[in-house]
Design a protein around this nucleic acid. Structure first.
Lengths: 226, 226
DNA sequence: TGCGCCATTATGTCTAGACATAATATGAGG
DNA sequence: CCTCATATTATGTCTAGACATAATGGCGCA
């Protein structure tokens, strides 16, 4: 086993088992180098990785300490709906309802925008409503895309690399019109996912998806360490 | 500026701006070392950090490549309710409804468990219902804690370091009893958060929180790069 | 007592070189 | 033309040492 990996994993185990508690001091790089019989740079790399993963905190002169766990954070995976539904073994279909060019994308983006509405279908039934705005200034190619054939989310995934995003998730009851489109009663709860996507500080797209509460749930996981 | 940091940031900028597209080949360590006038180890560190953050992918012999963006992942912060409500400027209170020891924590954990129910209050009104099971085998100290005074989530934060967790989020309509406790109608949508927490592979606690849909939403962010 | 400066010290970063490892590309042989 | 062994090559890891940096604790001075 690599010395660096071994040091990293042994220290991570000591922390996760609770043997070393938050705030505890981790031995200095020199001590660890002597204990494991390796160079200090090797220990430094191992501790650097632990610090990057948030398990320890390093302060010059003070030393390395077991970090205090984050309040609660978790990595949520928001799948592409086409993939999600296919993975369930159901037939996926995107039904475009309307598409229109606008001069200004509802104050989200300054320039011209494309406004798209449609329904994601799973096994012939409505799965989620989607309302999307695409900033044409950031994605000129979107003007040429055929959003009747391919869902805009799927198309964007293949055309816009490396963006930042912010998601807001909430529960609400649908309007009469939304309930009709989803094929549910107005009293049924829905999960709303609001996502704004940036690239280089400028909004690329904004999407609101409304899911049937009985058909969809989000999963988020948190695993400390490397 | 550090050479390592400079290399890292310049490459990250090239990727995020879209100049280098997913799948593109990044110059070899030797080329970069020559270009930036530093040792290969320095370049290696920079590329290693980019790989750790998911921006590039490295394959032996093949080289370093711009990674394909993840489908959609985001870091969700699940705040401690006491903190969340205090941050809103509202008075927080925890109302314990019932607490009972069980022989087996509803098949989640094999040993004895503590079952707790209560309500998180904000500004005098119900904010969220909580039903929790704590594995006494993993957290013996919980038997001594006063959960009438302090919410179990808050108590656990201070007593159980470094765990793994899995969250499931969904929208639903409350039962009559739940609606009454939350002070809302049975037709109002609620956000349900189901969290199971492990430590060293064993379940520590399981909690179900039911939020008023009109009072709470979750936020998740995704920022690529270091 | 209290304030501010300074030596100490642990981490942060870097170098130049070495060897390990794994995957690709190449060439030999069938 | 296909297959398998081999040489090449880019990354992976490590070393021993050097200097940088910043925070802490203590010392000296007011």
């Amino acid at each position: 086993m690599n010395p660096a990996r071994r040091i990293r994993d042994e220290i991570a185990a000591s922390i996760q088992s609770g043997e070393w508690r938050p705030g505890d001091r981790v031995p200095t790089e020199q001590e660890l180098a002597a204990r494991y019989g390796c160079a200090r740079a090797t220990v430094s790399k191992a501790l650097g990785e632990l610090a990057a993963s948030g398990l320890v905190e390093r302060r010059r002169k003070a030393g390395t300490f077991v970090a205090h766990p984050p309040v609660h954070s978790a990595v949520m995976t928001v799948p592409d709906l086409a993939e999600l539904i296919a993975a369930r073994g159901e037939a996926y279909r995107w039904d475009l309802a309307s598409i229109a060019a606008e001069d200004s994308g509802e104050a989200l983006c300054p320039g011209p925008a494309l406004r798209i509405e449609g329904v994601h279908m799973a096994a012939g039934e409505a799965f989620a409503l989607e309302r999307r705005v695409i900033a044409l200034g950031e994605v000129p190619a979107a003007a040429e895309a055929d959003f009747a054939k391919e869902a805009p989310g799927t198309w964007l995934l293949g055309h816009i690399p490396w963006t930042q995003a912010r998601h807001v998730i909430r529960a609400l009851t649908p309007t009469r019109r939304e309930a009709a489109l989803l094929g549910i009663g107005t009293g049924a709860a829905c999960l709303e996912l609001d996502r704004t996507t940036w690239r280089a500080g400028r909004v690329v797209t904004h999407v609101r998806q409304l899911f049937r509460g009985d058909r969809f749930d989000l999963v988020a996981e948190f695993n400390a360490g490397p």
